[in-house]
Design a protein around this nucleic acid. Structure first.
Length: 528
RNA sequence: UGCGCCGUGGAGCAGCGGUUAGCUCGCCAGGCUCAUAACCUGGAGGUCGCAGGUUCGAUUCCUGUCGGCGCAACCA
């Protein structure tokens, strides 16, 4: 039996120091779009997310709140997952690094690297800030003081830690980048890593002494595994490394690690080196996405603009516009901006006036003129609308390529410009609202064609706005002959054999409810 | 200081060695009336930060410069 090709995609795991913010949401949405797209293409997708809990700061934070660390991280994990669920993130799994499966895999891994001879013990001496409870590097220190605690004096603390021999992997890493040219994406990130690794790598400290919280080094219980040697491993422990080898063999390696550009070095240099040492296969791609910045607040009443909880926007306008905004406005590989004004502008222009309006006008005409049932669909040429959309098959193929390569903003612009606008132009050209009076048949044919364009749109936007896409699709009875759950991009080209098209959308007072009610910026003109 | 990014019509962004520099919003004029005052057509508006260089030709490549910004080993 032939198995569906596998596709394993991960996001970075997050520190649960505070609630998820808009920037982390950007990463999850971008990965989710890819996961959904790959599922549409028939892949057997595993989409992995999680929280990074074995950090000193987490236990400190719990202490501040007077909570047990485990209870604290469990609660945070619930909160994170609630946000991701509200954003319709379709992850298949969510790992907490305090879970047993992670601890077991982690210890197995570090033991393997130790046995391979790539871990050694070394005395580490550095300035230590009691305020931060952290070692400070030369660069951190300003005028001999910790910038966070200028009143305190730094003291030199010496400690024995384990180090990973990262420096020894320079040649092997460069060979990796050579043999897998698209390992690091996008190009600018690749160039950065290339120069970093070419310049030379230092060994990294991978353990700390004297902390209760965290995973013990198996060959030295006095030491706790520190940050990256713990966090990165979630990508393999989550899929069975150390606990379910059969599953691990099946799913690993990852097709994509989707991460923020600031941590590309850990994923592109440290991580592959770790895997090489443990003799595990390399992931196929690492994608370092850009950041989302908040546009400086305009000199208006809303003075101090600070990152709002993503939940605020989701609750106000729905998850789908939120997803659309980021995917359309922020090139995934580069940086983007968020501002409320821009959000409203994009929402009104693209969603309310275009997408939502097409939905309303089409359904209304079908109901008004034909009672919602258009017969004789098989006899008509339901390709005419494509005349407004030249080279349609090529377009669909291009779109698949764009989405598959994370060029979401380009893909969405193309869909709007070349499919949605074409649909509106088609209505203008055929004027069903006018010919209904003189030639009802011409009107019927025109509406059948618009219904078809809506089906196409539904498929094309499915990875980005799953719920909206489904409403578009189910606005008519396409589901009778084509299962929504299994449509692929290629199905956009296939016009289902359906003899009669019926409106199935929710109707109240003879009208479909607006999909995206326009956001009014101006206060009501006169209030008297 | 090191690394990287940006500077394109009023605003926000695309673009990229070569026909009339695109898109969204805003503005102006017209059309239409099915629709969420929406949709369609047309228009005004840019010497593509500045100065050099490479080239038959640069917004697009190189150098310098001014201005804005991000990152810098454990914050997406």
């Amino acid at each position: 039996m032939s198995e569906a090709p596998r596709f394993y995609i991960t996001t970075a795991i997050d520190y649960p120091n505070s609630r998820p913010h808009i920037g982390t949401a950007f990463e999850k949405i971008g990965a989710d779009v890819q996961a959904r797209f790959q599922r549409m293409q028939g892949k057997s997708v595993h989409f992995q997310m999680g929280n990074d809990e074995n950090t000193i700061k987490v236990s400190q934070r719990a202490g501040e709140l007077g909570q047990d660390p485990q209870a604290y991280v469990n609660d945070m994990a619930q909160q994170f997952q609630a946000v991701w669920a509200a954003l319709k993130i379709s992850n298949d799994d969510f790992i907490q690094t305090t879970e047993e499966r992670h601890r077991i895999g982690c210890q197995k891994f570090i033991q393997a690297v130790y046995d391979a001879g790539d871990i050694y013990k070394k005395a580490y001496s550095s300035q230590y800030c009691d305020g931060c409870e952290e070692f400070k590097t030369e660069r951190d220190i300003v005028e001999g003081k910790c910038p966070n605690h200028p009143q305190r004096t730094l003291r030199v603390v010496e400690e024995e830690n384990y180090f990973f021999r990262l420096s020894a992997f320079q040649d092997r890493l460069l060979a990796l980048y050579q043999s897998q040219p698209d390992f690091i994406q996008p190009e600018t990130r690749r160039n950065e890593i290339l120069s970093l690794v070419t310049t030379g790598l230092q060994d990294v400290s991978i353990s700390r002494k004297g902390f209760d919280w965290g995973i013990k080094v198996p060959f030295d219980p006095e030491q706790t595994i520190y940050v990256w040697f713990d966090a990165l491993l979630n990508y393999i422990t989550a899929v069975g490394y150390g606990t379910d080898d059969e599953r691990f063999q099946r799913i690993w390696p990852a097709d994509f690690h989707v991460i923020g550009k600031d941590i590309t070095r850990f994923h592109c240099a440290l991580w592959p080196a770790m895997l090489m040492s443990a003799k595990l296969p390399m992931p196929k791609h690492v994608l370092g996405h850009g950041f989302v910045y908040f546009k400086g607040a305009k000199a208006s009443k809303s003075a101090a603009e600070k990152p709002r909880d993503p939940m605020d926007y989701i609750a106000e306008h729905g998850a789908e516009p939120f997803r659309y905004y980021f995917m359309r406005e922020c090139p995934f590989g580069g940086d983007g901006n968020f501002s409320e004004e821009r959000f409203i502008e994009v929402y009104n222009a693209d969603l309310a006036n275009n997408l939502g309006n097409l939905y309303s006008r089409t359904l209304t005409m079908c109901l008004k003129y034909f009672d919602g049932t258009l017969t004789g669909a098989l006899e008509t040429d339901r390709t005419a609308w494509v005349a407004e959309c030249p080279n349609f098959p090529q377009l669909v193929q291009d779109l698949g390529g764009l989405v598959g390569s994370f060029q979401y903003n380009v893909a969405l612009q193309k869909i709007w410009l070349e499919v949605l606008d074409a649909s509106n132009r088609y209505i203008q050209a055929t004027q069903p609202f006018r010919v209904i009076k003189t030639d009802p048949d011409a009107c019927r044919v025109a509406l059948l064609n618009v219904a078809e364009s809506m089906r196409v749109l539904a498929i094309l936007i499915k990875p980005f706005m799953p719920a909206t896409a489904e409403r578009f699709f189910r606005a008519f009875n396409w589901d009778d002959v084509q299962a929504w759950e299994t449509v692929s991009y290629a199905d956009a080209l296939v016009r289902p054999e359906l003899s009669e098209i019926q409106v199935r959308a929710q109707i109240s007072d003879g009208k479909p409810a607006p999909l995206f009610p326009k956001i009014e910026v101006e206060p009501p003109a006169t209030r008297s």
